[in-house]
Simulated assay, not measured.
Amino acid sequence: MKNWLFLAIAIVGEVVATSALKSSEGFTKPFSSAVVLVGYGVAFYFLSLALKSIPVGIAYAVWAGLGIVLVAAIAWIFHGQKLDAWALLGMGLIVSGVAVLNLLSKTSAH
């Protein structure tokens, strides 16, 4: 269970860092640029800890799937990015795929 917490921290770090990329304006804003660097550092450190027991394919699928949905939500809330029905459907399919991997696949580490 601890490794799933590490993966969750890694995902949050990646989402924070990716969301700050737009605000960094090409790394010309020092604070936002620092958030990007620290966020990715946290993300990769905790991902490396999670990979001690979670298979890399499963961890990456969860990381990527949840990261896409969370970054899109943050972009919608803070940057005014529009999400049409197709975007929402696609993100729903991503979340469904991650759920299938974790709930039904024998590949997943439970």
Rank of each mutant, 00 (worst) to 15 (best):
G90W: 08
E25D: 12
A75H: 14
V62Y: 00
A59Q: 06
K2F: 14
F44Y: 09
H110V: 00
I77M: 12
V69G: 01
G65N: 08
L88Y: 07
G67E: 03
L104E: 06
Y45P: 04
S32H: 15
A59R: 03
I9S: 02
F31P: 07
A50L: 03
N102K: 02
A34I: 11
A17F: 11
A43E: 12
A73S: 15
S108D: 02
F78H: 07
K22Q: 10
A59D: 06
A99V: 10
F27G: 03
N102L: 07
I11S: 01
W63P: 04
Q81V: 10
S53K: 11
P55W: 04
G13F: 03
A61H: 09
V69R: 04
A99F: 13
A87Y: 13
G39H: 06
L89E: 01
A8W: 05
A99M: 12
K82D: 10
V36K: 07
V56N: 08
A75F: 11
G97E: 01
H110T: 02
K22C: 11
G92S: 06
L70M: 15
S105D: 07
P55Q: 07
D84G: 10
N3K: 07
S24D: 13
L104F: 15
V38N: 12
L47T: 13
A72W: 07
F27E: 01
G39D: 06
V38Y: 04
L7H: 01
V16F: 08
I68V: 10
S105C: 05
I77K: 14
S96G: 15
L5P: 10
K2T: 10
L70F: 15
Y45A: 05
I77A: 13
S108H: 09
H110S: 04
K2A: 13
P30W: 09
V100L: 14
I77H: 13
G92P: 02
G41L: 05
I68K: 01
K52I: 06
L47Y: 15
Y40W: 04
A17D: 03
F31M: 11
A85E: 13
W86V: 15
T107K: 08
S108L: 04
M1C: 00
A59M: 11
L93C: 15
P30A: 09
V71L: 12
L5E: 11
G67V: 02
I77C: 08
A72R: 12
L101G: 00
T28L: 04
F6I: 06
A8E: 12
L88V: 11
K22T: 06
I94W: 09
T107S: 11
A34R: 05
S23M: 12
T107V: 14
F6S: 04
S48E: 08
L49K: 14
S96L: 15
A64Q: 09
V38P: 07
L70G: 09
N102G: 08
F27L: 00
I54W: 00
V35C: 14
L37R: 01
M91A: 09
L103P: 07
S53E: 14
A73H: 10
K106H: 15
L5M: 07
I94V: 15
Y45N: 04
K29M: 13
P30R: 11
G80N: 08
A43M: 14
N102C: 04
A99E: 05
V35K: 10
L49Y: 01
A34Q: 13
G39T: 03
F44S: 06
N102W: 00
S24F: 12
T18H: 01
T18W: 05
V36R: 09
K106W: 14
A10R: 02
L66Y: 06
